[in-house]
């Protein structure tokens, strides 16, 4: 009965509901967008009423917000932090810099497409997205978690070779600890 397909589905539904209502955001700002996190979390926009909370370390966090441009140096750290997080884990690309490079599209040290290096679940458009947009994006994330579609961690493990190849292209001498991802 426990391994029954239907009961598994029910358990999954309940788990996804819990995951969507308790989203711990890693307090790690990569770019200028981190300035929008403070009003989103504090009394003006109060994301905690929706279940969002800051988590201090990657081990405890569920979501990583890539807040803005990512330099080549930061990508390494972000990948490391992402691999330290415990699945299920989600990535939210924040601002136009993560989507297509934004105003830094021709800069030699910022990457353009975030989803070549990490599986992104939700993109939030804008430069910078205001807290309303951030909350809208997080609500979208909640929705896809509830539907069970936020499977970025599995996608990352399945296509690990491709992601690692892309990461090695910008950081050739960097040894990433694949595939057990246990930093």
């Amino acid at each position: 009965m426990y391994n029954d397909k239907n009961s598994k589905k029910i358990v999954e539904t309940i788990q996804n509901w819990a995951r969507s209502h308790s989203v711990w955001v890693l307090a790690y700002g990569t770019g200028c967008g981190a300035i929008e996190i403070a009003p989103t979390m504090t009394s003006r926009y109060d994301a905690e009423r929706l279940g969002f909370r800051g988590a201090a370390t990657p081990r405890q966090a569920d979501v990583m917000l890539i807040t803005g441009y990512l330099t080549v140096k930061t990508v390494k750290r972000v990948v490391r932090v992402y691999e330290q997080m415990q699945s299920p884990k989600y990535v939210v690309g924040f601002g136009s810099c993560t989507i297509n490079g934004g105003m830094y599209y021709d800069s030699y040290n910022t990457i353009n497409l975030l989803d070549r290096y990490l599986p992104v679940d939700v993109y939030i458009n804008g430069c910078m997205p205001r807290p309303e947009a951030v909350i809208a994006g997080l609500a979208k994330l909640q929705q896809i978690i509830r539907e069970g579609k936020a499977n970025g961690a599995e996608k990352y493990l399945e296509n690990l070779e491709w992601y690692k190849e892309n990461q090695r292209k910008i950081a050739p001498n960097w040894i990433a600890k694949a595939p057990d991802l246990n930093w």
Binding site: I14, Q15, S22, S87
Partner: peptide, 11 residues
Amino acid sequence: IDAFKLLSKTR
């Protein structure tokens, strides 16, 4: 909810 979510982490 937080506790249940932590319990249902897969790794």
